[in-house]
Simulated assay, not measured.
Amino acid sequence: MDLFGETSNWAVKLKPILKKYKGEKHPLEYQNTYQLLVMVVLSAQDSDANINKIAPALFEKFPTLKSLSKTDIETFKTYISKVRNYPTKAGWLLEIAKTIKKDEDIPLTMQGLTDLKGLGRKSANVIMRETHQPVEGIITDLHVIRVAPRIGIVKENKDGNKVEKELMQVLPKSIWSEIGMVISFHGRETCRPKPKCEECPIADDCQYYLTHVI
């Protein structure tokens, strides 16, 4: 079995999970692009569930980028103090707010988003996917970094940007916008650190299943 490269025809092999998760909203419970931007920055190295928990009070106090740009860092930090690495993230977000100022001016391109403090390609891909922008990459979060090599789509690598680059080489652009989030959901629900192979709809094409389970 050829595990790597276009000859593996992963677009076909991944169809069962694409069908299952395509179009699913990101687990962050945002109401608009401003909230999505803030929550994506806060969620780095933290859980979506934790960010969802602190979001209501945060956005009641700071409903727009403009309101956020007018506060001071000490006030702001009290609203995100339960978030991992919150002092650094507070600085990033206040700089973003002061730079952009208005919600409607949030950039929605890879270049525009990654030019902002605290936003890498993974975060930019999430924002672009959720706001239905033309695709420029593949969401590569911690679940994708763990699951994609386990399945056999790419070689193991801890660097998300390298995993994304390899996924982009192997998978057709027609599924880029969805496949990262699809693999992420698959990793959250089925292909967990201790995988539920017996429930997996793509087990027959999975490197881990074929070499470790059967």
Rank of each mutant, 00 (worst) to 15 (best):
P149G: 07
L119M: 10
L93G: 06
L3Q: 07
W10S: 05
K25E: 08
L116I: 03
P107C: 03
R129T: 02
R192D: 00
G160E: 12
Q45L: 11
K155A: 14
S43D: 01
I175W: 01
H212T: 11
K15V: 05
V12N: 04
T109E: 09
T114V: 14
E95R: 13
F62A: 04
C197L: 05
T88V: 09
I17A: 03
L28W: 00
V83Y: 00
T75G: 07
Q207V: 00
V135I: 10
W10P: 01
Q45C: 04
I100N: 07
N125D: 12
M168K: 15
Q111L: 12
Q207S: 09
T78Q: 13
Q133L: 05
K77D: 05
L18E: 09
Y79S: 06
H143G: 10
P134S: 08
V144I: 14
T64R: 04
Y209H: 13
E29F: 03
G137D: 12
P149I: 09
A57G: 01
K165Q: 14
Q169F: 03
T75R: 09
L171Y: 01
I51L: 14
A90N: 08
V170R: 07
D72H: 12
I54V: 15
R129A: 08
I151Q: 11
T71V: 07
R192S: 12
S47C: 03
K25V: 03
D141Y: 02
E6F: 11
K196A: 15
K70Y: 04
G5P: 00
G120Y: 07
S184W: 02
I202A: 13
K158Y: 11
I96M: 09
G180P: 10
L65H: 03
K25L: 04
